[in-house]
Design a protein around this nucleic acid. Structure first.
Length: 885
RNA sequence: AGGCUCGUAGCUCAGGGGGAGAGCACUACCUUGACACGGUAGGGGUCAGCGGUUCAAAUCCGCUCGAGCCUACCA
């Protein structure tokens, strides 16, 4: 519930303190609702301000949020919230993808449960079923994005099959066709017999598989030894239409100009010479040529005008052309039978194990069949060229930069893209064939053939590869090809965040399409992140049982913990190792923040605070924590500029936990409790606590939006919610080297005192007398420590503190340039649990190494003077320390 | 076959030419007035190996070994 009363008085405004226990589920949904209702996700603010625009990588519309999505979307949301707080007009466009093959397969499976088949149902009815499925199952993932806290602009939600986006697809197809960049042709393509469709090269996953390579002898009239060919797929020989040799290979020269006889079939095969197809060094030097079932053979067949004989059909069964004996057999059955025949005829010369890179369908794992068919292709080289140039010019920048090389490598050897799919769910290809066989490609359904006027038109039955529409996403979401206000205002976008596994599928194609259709690269930065793995780097899989469901994790630990864990592990270029225990660790961090806030709020309620810190004399601890706060702010912004989510998160973690909580909160207690300081000091401390916590909440908000907003509400009476607060940039005038050095020394001295107790088996409350030598190497720090006497005494639980150079037979040491001596007034010093001799050895070792450097004339001459000076000081300190020990 | 990335504490990883870091795990002590999802103190590493450049190498270069990934039409 948003606060109602305006400007409450300090006495009443914090009536509601934070609950004792931190329960993220109690407020996450409430805050998302408030942000959404208040329109915080829409671009707002100064119309002159720079924009920051992202489009979401659209997930499958019927999919569920998995941890990989959660990772990418978390990074995007961090950027969106950060930029928004920095005053950018920020827009993050959400949407979903129709995911052609994937969705169709799911629905087909559903049908199968009912004993139905899509073909039996018919195209219309089937598509109807898919839409029904989409309505039932769809958009769950969108609610899941809400749970994660994604600040996307829901008023601009898009789906790749929306009418406007479908229009964009159609326009793109027609324009590419008109430009001569889309063509139809007979080619050997990657065919999935199970899915019943062609797929692109990228959708084939190569897997090294143990197979067999057989050597088979073909008869060659006039050559007594015949020709021995090697093959891993004997069943395809039924479709051989030639043998090929290398023109410069003496081994096979005797076959030149001859004809061979195809075993089993008896067909006459010319021996052709093809230096491209044949590698002299491999196998027997003779290659069987099967133009209908191998892409290379097909190319060779084109060069030599060979016949194509299709012996394997689209269902991976042998065709009639394979001969009566084999027709109807599955390809692998046919292989066995063919081998048996060859064996019987004594033609199998050898059979040896052979590892081959077997292509499998990315969707279903079925072995891909090279299949000769008529398909639509994008002629890609002319599109790739400007896309390469754009990256070379730096118009598009990959982060981490190493991906640039991968991009260039792939783009420079890119093959034409097969875009037709023999599916029903998707964008139908806008090509119409008339009764006379002419093809008309048009943005609106034509009524007559563009070539001959024939009115009997049939639309191409195929649909487009899903990625054909995805490549248009950064501008189709804004209404392209119409020149909409959004397109003008928000295109090109700023940053794209995605995983490396779709760099070629999607990112490269968006760059090509963006440049071709809009003349502009679709984004300037591409942040490429890794994949989420388990804590040992293993892929998550149901069978391994190591899957982390982000929704379950959110239920258990809160969205903030999930987000923070993902962010802090986001090392650039690497996969991220995640385990439930790690998410739990960052819930602990949220809890820590929660408790620090409870403490702070209680203190603020305990008395008045200074209205402003400006011009107020600050004590060292206050100067220190403000310096650290602003140092952290600077660091976080710097790291986010560089997409270093991990470093930014780490800086925040370290600051909040180890400096604010472990450091300043503890230092503030003696003053706040009234044991030390004046009322004025207390007012100052309260103001510093307030300011520091506010800024820390703001800094942390992009990472942990819910808990920070919840605390912010209780802490501040400023209007508006944290999501639109100003992001702290870090003020240089708050940096204070002097205070940082002094407090650092103070903390080191306190640590040494505690360590003195613990290594001598004394309890934590055992009184200790501390003497600090004013003639310490870091003399300037000593006077600061004198100023901090009261604090030092309290933190070190000292029974006495003196500043003197007079040794008293206690235990001496030097830390951070402060020479000190400790002793127990009530207790024998006791034995040091860590042998002094070992410490001495360490110091001696370092003295000799530093000393050696300083005695090296080369070092003195060539090393930068500040390094030499540093070494001198270090040696001095080491010697002092040695004397003390 | 080519290319890329990576070998740093028990685990997972930052760092990157001048004193080896973090988180978790581990050990000891502590129910101290925000927090046991906590506090305090500590143990633990020839920074894969070999060579080179340099006054100085975990860091730059080369090679070797090991791990992972991507691309490729070797029948």
């Amino acid at each position: 519930m948003p606060k109602k009363s305006p400007a409450p008085t300090p006495a009443t405004r914090r009536e509601r303190s934070l609950e004792k226990t931190f329960e993220p589920a109690s407020f996450e949904a409430r805050w998302y609702g408030i942000w959404e209702r208040e329109g915080r996700f829409q671009p707002a603010g100064d119309p002159e301000a720079p924009t920051f625009v992202m489009v979401i990588p659209p997930p499958n519309v019927t999919g569920r949020l998995h941890i990989g999505h959660a990772f990418g979307r978390t990074l995007e949301d961090i950027l969106a919230r950060w930029k928004r707080m920095r005053g950018h007009r920020t827009l993050w466009v959400p949407g979903t993808d129709h995911a052609g093959i994937a969705t169709q397969m799911v629905v087909e499976r559903e049908l199968a449960k009912e004993g139905l088949d899509r073909r039996a149902l018919g195209r219309e009815a089937f598509i109807e079923r898919v839409w029904t499925w989409k309505k039932q199952q769809g958009n769950v993932i969108l609610d899941q994005l809400r749970r994660l806290g994604c600040s996307v602009d829901w008023s601009r939600l898009r789906f790749t099959l929306d009418p406007e986006l479908s229009e964009a697809v159609r326009t793109a197809f027609v324009r590419l066709y008109a430009d001569g960049l889309i063509y139809q042709g007979f080619r050997v393509v990657n065919w999935c017999p199970r899915c019943g469709t062609a797929v692109s090269d990228l959708e084939v996953e190569r897997e090294d598989t143990e197979g067999t390579i057989w050597k088979i002898r073909y008869d060659v009239p006039g050559v007594s030894s015949g020709a021995v060919v090697a093959t891993t797929r004997p069943e395809t020989m039924l479709g051989d239409t030639a043998l090929a040799i290398h023109p410069e290979d003496p081994k096979t020269a005797k076959l030149r100009g001859k004809t061979a006889v195809l075993p089993i079939v008896g067909r006459t095969l010319p021996v052709i010479e093809d230096p491209v197809l044949v590698d002299k060094e491999f196998g027997t030097g003779v290659v069987k040529v099967t133009p209908a079932h191998d892409a290379n053979d097909f190319a060779s067949g084109q060069r030599h005008g060979l016949e194509t004989v299709v012996v394997i059909g689209p269902d991976a069964r042998m065709t009639d052309a394979a001969g009566e004996e084999f027709a109807g057999l599955d390809r692998f059955e046919a292989r066995k039978k063919v081998l048996a025949r060859l064996q019987a005829e004594g033609r199998v010369v050898s059979a040896e194990p052979h590892v081959l890179a077997l292509g499998k369908c990315q969707r279903c794992g079925t072995v891909i069949e090279p299949y000769l068919s008529k398909q639509w292709f994008v002629k890609i080289a002319p599109l790739a060229e400007p896309a390469i140039a754009a990256v070379e010019r730096g118009d598009v920048r990959f982060v981490p930069e190493m991906w640039t090389k991968n991009y260039f490598g792939w783009m420079r050897e890119i093959h034409d893209w097969c875009i037709s799919r023999q599916l029903w769910w998707g964008h139908r290809i806008p090509a119409f064939t008339c009764a006379n066989g002419h093809v008309t490609v048009s943005e609106v359904d034509p009524t007559a053939c563009a070539t001959c006027g024939n009115e009997e038109l049939a639309q191409d039955p195929d649909v487009l590869d899903t990625w054909f529409s995805s490549q248009l996403w950064p501008f189709s979401v804004f209404g392209w090809p119409k020149e909409t206000a959004d397109l003008k205002a928000f295109y090109p976008t700023s940053t794209l965040v995605t995983a490396w596994d779709i760099l070629f599928f999607w990112v490269a194609r968006m760059i090509m399409a963006g440049l071709h259709f809009t003349g502009k690269a679709p984004f300037t930065d591409v942040h490429i992140h890794g994949l989420v793995r388990d804590e040992h780097g293993q892929k998550m899989s149901k069978t391994k049982g190591n899957v982390i469901d982000p929704l379950e994790a959110i239920d258990e630990f809160g969205a903030d913990a999930v987000r923070f864990a993902l962010a802090i592990f986001a090392s650039p270029g690497a996969n991220i190792p995640l385990a439930r225990s790690r998410i739990r660790d960052y819930r602990a961090f949220a809890t820590k923040l929660w408790n620090a806030a409870r403490f702070t709020i209680a203190q603020l309620d305990g008395g008045p605070k200074a209205e402003s810190l400006e011009g107020r004399a600050l004590r060292l601890p206050e100067r220190w924590i403000l310096s650290r706060l602003h140092g952290t702010a600077t660091e976080v912004n710097r790291q986010l500029e560089a997409f270093r989510f991990d470093e930014a998160a780490q800086a925040l973690y370290a600051f909040l936990w180890h400096e604010l909580c472990d450091g300043y909160l503890e230092m503030s207690k003696p003053v706040l409790s009234g044991r030390e300081g004046t009322d004025e000091d207390r007012e100052t401390v309260r103001a510093v606590l307030d300011e520091t916590l506010r800024d820390a909440l703001a800094l942390l908000h992009p990472f942990m939006p819910f808990v920070t907003e919840e605390i912010w509400e209780k802490l501040t009476d400023a209007p508006g919610t944290l999501i639109v607060a100003k992001y702290p940039l870090g003020r240089a005038d708050r940096r204070d080297k002097d205070a940082e050095k002094a407090i650092s020394a103070l903390r080191a001295v306190v640590t040494r005192v505690r360590n003195f107790r613990s290594e001598r088996a004394a309890g934590p409350t055992e009184p200790v007398e501390l003497r600090i030598d004013p003639k310490s190497p870091e003399a300037a720090v000593i006077s600061r420590l004198e100023d901090l006497s009261a604090l030092l005494t309290a933190m070190g639980r000292l029974s006495a503190l003196s500043f003197s150079s007079e040794a008293r037979g206690g235990v001496q040491d030097v830390v951070e340039g402060v020479a000190m001596e400790m002793s127990f007034p009530k207790k024998a010093a006791g034995a040091d649990k860590v042998a002094i001799s070992r410490k001495l050895a360490d110091v001696d070792e370092e003295i000799s190494s530093v000393g050696a450097k300083l005695r090296n004339s080369q070092f003195l001459e060539k090393a930068p003077p500040e390094i030499v000076e540093k070494m001198r000081r270090r040696l001095l300190e080491l010697e002092e320390r040695r004397a003390a020990l």
